[in-house]
Simulated scan of single mutants.
Amino acid sequence: MVFDTDQEELILARDSDKIEKIILNLISNAIKFSNCDTDIEIKINTDLPSKRLFISVKNYGEIIEEDDRERIFGKFTQTENLFIRKNEGSGIGLFLVRKFVEMHNGKIYVENIENATQFTFYLPIYIIEEEVYNQIIDENDILNKCNIEFSDI
């Protein structure tokens, strides 16, 4: 896995459990659908003028045809024929990913880039004042729930 980010740390007003599920599902899918001995690229970029955080997960394997790019976000949907499926799964993961992204007023899309499939989603950057933040989150829970550090590895 190759991880890259343009920010060392960014603290957002988010549901960190949902964000974790989004990212883990996208990484899990990337692992399942990657060709052997290829990289999985995870990039996190901020667009401060538009107040958006972009996260993308790219893998080198089977590409997703343009006709399937919307359909794969449906409930219990997969691109392969069920009788010849090579990878396990219920087909609910990307449906939930889209719902969790939309819950945060974001958007997710998929595209093929350089013989690879890349899922990208963005979230609006909402920053709240520390006084409000402390009222919403218990002091003991701050580090566990909301302080997400993005460091270059």
Rank of each mutant, 00 (worst) to 15 (best):
K75G: 04
I72K: 02
G91L: 06
I108S: 02
I128V: 13
L143K: 15
T79Y: 09
I84Y: 10
I64R: 08
N59E: 10
N115I: 00
I137P: 01
V110F: 00
E129C: 11
N144L: 07
K75C: 09
G74T: 05
G74P: 02
K51F: 07
I113W: 10
E139T: 03
I64F: 00
F54W: 08
V132W: 12
P124T: 04
K145Y: 11
I92E: 08
E131P: 02
E130C: 09
Y133F: 14
L143M: 12
E70P: 05
F121I: 02
I125T: 08
V110R: 02
E131H: 06
N105D: 12
S56C: 01
Y133W: 08
G93Y: 04
K107D: 11
I127E: 07
E62Y: 10
E80W: 00
V97I: 02
N81Q: 04
K58T: 11
R85M: 03
L53K: 07
D138E: 13
T117V: 04
V132R: 15
L96P: 05
V101W: 01
L123R: 10
N144G: 14
V57P: 06
N112T: 03
Q118M: 09
A116T: 05
K58H: 07
V101M: 02
K51Q: 15
I55D: 01
D68Q: 14
D67N: 10
